[in-house]
Simulated scan of single mutants.
Amino acid sequence: MPSDLTYTPAAGHHWLTPVYDFGVAALTREHRWRSALIAQVRPRAGDVIVDVGCGTGSLLVRLGKAAPSARLIGIDPDPAVVARARKKVAAAGITAELHIGFARQAAELLAGPPPTKIVSSLVFHQVPMEEKVAALAAMHAALGAGGEVHIADYGLQRTALMRGLFRTIIQNLDGRVNTQPNADGILPELMDAAGFRSVEETLVVPTLSGSISLYRGTRPA
């Protein structure tokens, strides 16, 4: 792993971390896309589900409530948000293992049975192209045969309105270089190149900060 690898904080700047959850709720129609993502993941007893870029733990809590006996694991490089995630999952009565690390370290951070499902939300638009590629490769390597990947993130911005909102909100917070490939619709292509099969965009949710897409793919058995 590059020794100079850095990360973009959850809200674009460290000083905005305390208001990250509020911003996601206010600007992304969070309930709509998170609920759809949970329905797509179909958490079940016996699943090993890894949330790559777990942030403050919002998705882990929903996964835990949907499948209380599933093994949940969260990975994030930001110690501040991992600390928030620990408090959030504990307050919800959810059991989850939390690791500080980058998405490209997913395979090496995990011990025990391979994940059956890997999820990621609002992460890929924040990282450089090199990290998008490395993260998907690590997720593919970590999954067991027949395992699934599920991603919710800003995808192809199909209309002038969505492009304008994305540019005004997300690109002002997270910059243009890392975010533009997402807005151009690169994720399905990168998932396919990483070795995932049956890759598809399953839902597009217009929001006040641009459109968020749901994707899924499978590691071949």
Rank of each mutant, 00 (worst) to 15 (best):
residue 2 P to Y: 04
residue 2 P to F: 02
residue 8 T to Q: 11
residue 8 T to S: 12
residue 14 H to G: 02
residue 14 H to A: 13
residue 16 L to F: 03
residue 18 P to Y: 07
residue 19 V to C: 05
residue 22 F to R: 15
residue 22 F to E: 05
residue 23 G to Q: 12
residue 24 V to E: 01
residue 25 A to Y: 05
residue 26 A to S: 11
residue 29 R to E: 09
residue 29 R to P: 00
residue 33 W to G: 01
residue 42 R to K: 15
residue 48 V to H: 09
residue 49 I to L: 08
residue 54 C to E: 04
residue 54 C to Q: 07
residue 56 T to A: 06
residue 56 T to M: 04
residue 66 A to V: 08
residue 72 L to C: 12
residue 74 G to S: 07
residue 76 D to R: 06
residue 77 P to C: 07
residue 78 D to H: 10
residue 79 P to G: 09
residue 89 V to E: 03
residue 89 V to K: 11
residue 91 A to I: 03
residue 92 A to T: 09
residue 94 I to D: 03
residue 102 F to Q: 10
residue 105 Q to S: 14
residue 106 A to C: 14
residue 110 L to S: 01
residue 112 G to L: 08
residue 112 G to R: 09
residue 112 G to D: 09
residue 116 T to L: 00
residue 117 K to N: 10
residue 119 V to T: 15
residue 119 V to M: 02
residue 121 S to V: 04
residue 123 V to A: 08
residue 123 V to Y: 02
residue 127 V to P: 00
residue 129 M to K: 12
residue 132 K to D: 08
residue 135 A to G: 15
residue 144 G to P: 00
residue 146 G to M: 01
residue 146 G to S: 09
residue 147 G to S: 10
residue 153 D to G: 03
residue 154 Y to G: 01
residue 155 G to F: 03
residue 157 Q to N: 10
residue 158 R to K: 15
residue 160 A to E: 05
residue 165 L to Q: 11
residue 165 L to A: 14
residue 169 I to Q: 07
residue 169 I to C: 08
residue 170 I to H: 04
residue 173 L to I: 12
residue 174 D to N: 14
residue 174 D to L: 04
residue 178 N to K: 10
residue 182 N to P: 01
residue 184 D to R: 15
residue 187 L to D: 04
residue 188 P to G: 12
residue 188 P to M: 10
residue 190 L to C: 09
residue 194 A to H: 06
residue 199 V to L: 04
residue 200 E to I: 05
residue 201 E to D: 05
residue 203 L to M: 14
residue 206 P to A: 09
residue 208 L to A: 15
residue 211 S to A: 15
residue 211 S to D: 12
residue 214 L to A: 11
residue 214 L to P: 05
residue 214 L to F: 06
residue 220 P to N: 14
residue 221 A to G: 13
